[in-house]
């Protein structure tokens, strides 16, 4: 609230300054001949300067944001494919920043330089095919680059795992307003499920006559995955749409009632390693809900622990099987 008062104060100061610049006469500010504006060079010059000031201010604001909060954005990716996402993000980010700066410098500079002047005769410049083709072709070339890298990465990230691959199969189940994880167990298969079988004891609606389901393991609150081993996720939802968002792994997939969706990734750093990398002893990987799903959407979370395969096996062993 202190901040709020400070800002309001600055705003009022700004208005008063403007008022004084205008001659300090409140009535004057409402008396003006529309024609005055056009031919008042001073007035237009001031606006030109304001744009320069704004441009500089904007840049300083961005630098301030980067300096203050640039370090709070997501750390290095905790998954293998995440490195590809991040490098593409970096390339795109650099290109965007360059274009952003160039176009804004041009914009504010032109606006400043060509502010009204009685003696200037504006150019009568209606078109120029070469120039226009240039700035059709230039973005097109940059786009070809971005699209190629993007699609290459996209196809490799979205490729389903092979059946033969050594992997962990986990079902993530979403309902208002919590998450459940179900491990496939020794047989590597998840038992069938159906909504009509849902009851308090069996809230995933697992088919208890399906032998495949017997060794499934159900966990709540947090789930563990082994480092350096592919994890195949299957997503289901009970009531409305949710979205399983694991930002530290650059992973997201919607959970849709009536539809099974999937995503896979290979964790690269254990939770412990990530704590060292982020220099944050309390760091935890998180699963968030990222699709509006009702009033407690904002509180729907589950902790993810990445650990060595050994520790993972130990943890899994103490969890009971479904039957």
């Amino acid at each position: 609230m202190l901040l709020l008062s400070a800002f309001l104060f600055i705003l009022i100061l700004f208005l008063i300054t403007f008022f004084y610049l205008k001659g300090g006469d409140f009535k004057e500010m409402f008396k003006e001949n529309p024609d005055d504006l056009k031919f008042d060079e001073q007035e237009n010059r001031t606006q030109g300067w304001l744009f320069i000031a704004f441009g500089i201010g904007f840049l300083l604001f961005i630098l301030f944001l980067i300096f203050k909060w640039g370090g709070s954005i997501l750390p290095e990716s905790g998954s293998v494919h995440g490195a590809d996402v991040d490098s593409l993000m970096l390339i795109t980010g650099v290109i965007i920043s360059i274009v952003f700066v160039i176009t804004h410098v041009l914009l504010f500079f032109f606006v400043f330089k060509y502010a009204f002047n009685k003696n200037r005769k504006p150019a009568f410049f209606t078109h120029n095919l070469k120039l226009e083709l240039l700035w059709t072709a230039l973005p097109a070339m940059v786009l070809v680059l971005l699209i190629s890298i993007g699609l290459y990465n996209w196809n490799s990230i979205m490729k389903p795992l092979d059946d033969k691959d050594d992997k962990v199969l986990i079902e993530i189940y979403a309902k208002q307003f919590d998450w459940t994880a179900r491990y496939a167990g020794n047989d590597g298969k998840l038992g069938r499920a159906n909504i009509v079988l849902i009851n308090n004891a069996n809230f995933l609606g697992i088919d208890t006559t399906d032998v495949v389901s017997f060794d499934d393991k159900i966990v709540k609150n947090e789930f563990h995955i082994p480092v350096n081993k592919p994890v195949q996720f299957v997503f289901r939802a009970q009531d409305v749409m949710h979205s399983a968002y694991m930002p530290h792994f650059r992973a997201q997939m919607n959970c849709v009632p009536g539809l099974k969706t999937q995503f896979n990734f290979t964790p690269k750093y254990t939770t412990q390693e990530m704590r060292r990398i982020t220099k944050n002893p309390d760091f935890d990987y998180m699963l968030l809900c990222n699709k509006i799903c009702g009033m407690a959407h904002f509180a729907m979370k589950m902790k993810i622990v990445v650990e060595s395969e050994e520790d993972y096996n130990k943890w899994l062993a103490i969890n009971p099987t479904f039957r």
Partner: peptide
Amino acid sequence: TLLIAIPSAIKVFNYLTTLWRGNIIFS
């Protein structure tokens, strides 16, 4: 989707060129 960047870029550069060597009145 990314193709839309092309006509958008054309518009932006055309605006910039319109401002270039104009005699701008800041209404």
